[in-house]
Design a protein around this nucleic acid. Sequence first.
DNA 1: GCCGTTTTCGGCCCGACTGTTTTCAGTCG
Length: 576
Amino acid sequence: MPRCNDAVADLLQEYADLIAITGGEPFKVRVYEKAARSVGGYVQDLSALDEAGLRRIPNVGQSIAAKIEEYLRTGAIHQLEELRAKVPAGVRRLIDVPTLGPKKAMVLYEEVGVRSVEDLEAAIHAGRLQGLHGFGPKTEDNLLHGIALMHKTGARVRLDAAMEVAEAIVAALSDVPGCVRCAYAGSLRRMKDTIGDVDVLATADDSAALMAALPGLPAVAEVIAHGETKTSVRTDTGLQVDLRVVTPGSWGAALQYFTGSRAHNIRTREIAVHKKLKLSEYGLFDVVTGDSIASTDEEDVYGRLGLPWIAPTLREDAGEIEAALAGALPRLVTAGDIRGDLHTHTVLTDGLASLEEMAEAAAARGYAYYAVTDHAPGLSMQRMTDAKALEQRELVRALDGALGGMRLLHGIELNIGPDGDVDWPPGFLDGFDLCVASVHSHFGQSRAEMTARLVRACENPHVNIVGHPTARLIGRREPVDADWAEVFAACARTGTALEVNAFPDRLDLPADLIRLAAGAGVVFSIDTDAHAVPHLAHLRYGIGTAQRGWLTPEQVINTWPLDRLRRFLRKGRRTR
DNA sequence: GCCGTTTTCGGCCCGACTGTTTTCAGTCG
């Protein structure tokens, strides 16, 4: 189940959306949005807090604390219910369409009677928006494109959202009497960047108790199918969950089968056929005698096929079978290899926690080093100044080594301007231990412009890491268009690392581009881009993405010892 | 509705971009 904080954050965000749609006070909208973010990123669980505790959360005052209390006590907020009564749920979903905000959503609802995204699409095709003030032909095109983008990701959900649901269900089912083992499989175990449905596998001698338990879990809204060994449900967030139960002796074969991918499974079954064997979810069998040869664990199943165990993140039939047969599988980077996070924020710009709080949490994760990289002034809304950066540096130096020996690096997240230049001149950049540089604007440049822009950033002797290189937001913004081969060549030539941003709505670079870049000799930094303490735990998604890109620890700069990392960060600088 | 080197009221991030306008509203980051 999502944390209570997340549920409250969702409600506050919904309240903000509904105020905006109904034309409420703009300041009020921002306050509720800020409160939602603060609550979502707050370390302590809300349900453990009293009124005074709630009010200590930034941007939560008397009124919002009262609403949170009401929710914790009754499960609802009456002011929110009143707004919900005024605005159909589908109208709120309209603002999820890129380029469609609250104002236009309300016009569409009041003037044309549009009550959902589907209504909007139909209205555009029927020409019912023509003549409507503020809706010209270009707007219609943009809306249709936005809707198409939404449909493309379709019902797929973000990796972290699926993970939360899966982990809660696995935990609950593991406690069911008779359950021997339980785990999630499918695309979630392969760490794909979006998840269509959650596959859960369990073993038990008698499946009945597990079949009965799943529909009764609190997050379940609807039972789609209900049989003896398979039950499918839909959660209250609309995510489909399939539970499959096999006997304990079939665990390995079933886990292999349900982890997939389909293409990988076809390959492994072909190998079985050539060996006069049959591979199914129940085991690996001798075709002639029908005897079970292997089934209890995955290593055994792969081993009897003549293969080493293959990490789930590689199972896409993207060369892993050939590599396995040749004994050439990579030693994949793991969370345990990571010595530090090199892209993080604090309250100095748009983070939610102080430098001390972030650093303490990083030290608690056992990091040897940790870089603070707040936004540079080019992102004007963040109001960074030279003085603020220098002041923060003193704080960083004072804390350096003080938290369990963890070394602190003072970094910055620069903005790569339209022409590839960055926020500060070389003289000022010399003072930072490292510079991440990212695209935050002008996403629609042509391929030639964007390529030149990124190459120029790499050629800057102060730019160490290109942050979230494609700038995609999963389901919301397409990656920028660039000649990636040229960009990767520039990275390799100049000693510039590419980021594997672990934030679940980014996962950027994406895995396919990671493999291409690695082939060009590029090195990487797996970072969380954390804006709050809980975000530091997103590292796992960056690790999963890096593994899907076949990365080894050697190719990841933040697995390196600090002295080696520092040599890399020196790049083409004049000093240090 | 929150907050405080502007401190219990008055201000709240702000500039770029787009599409639609003919001077501006809406959206985005």
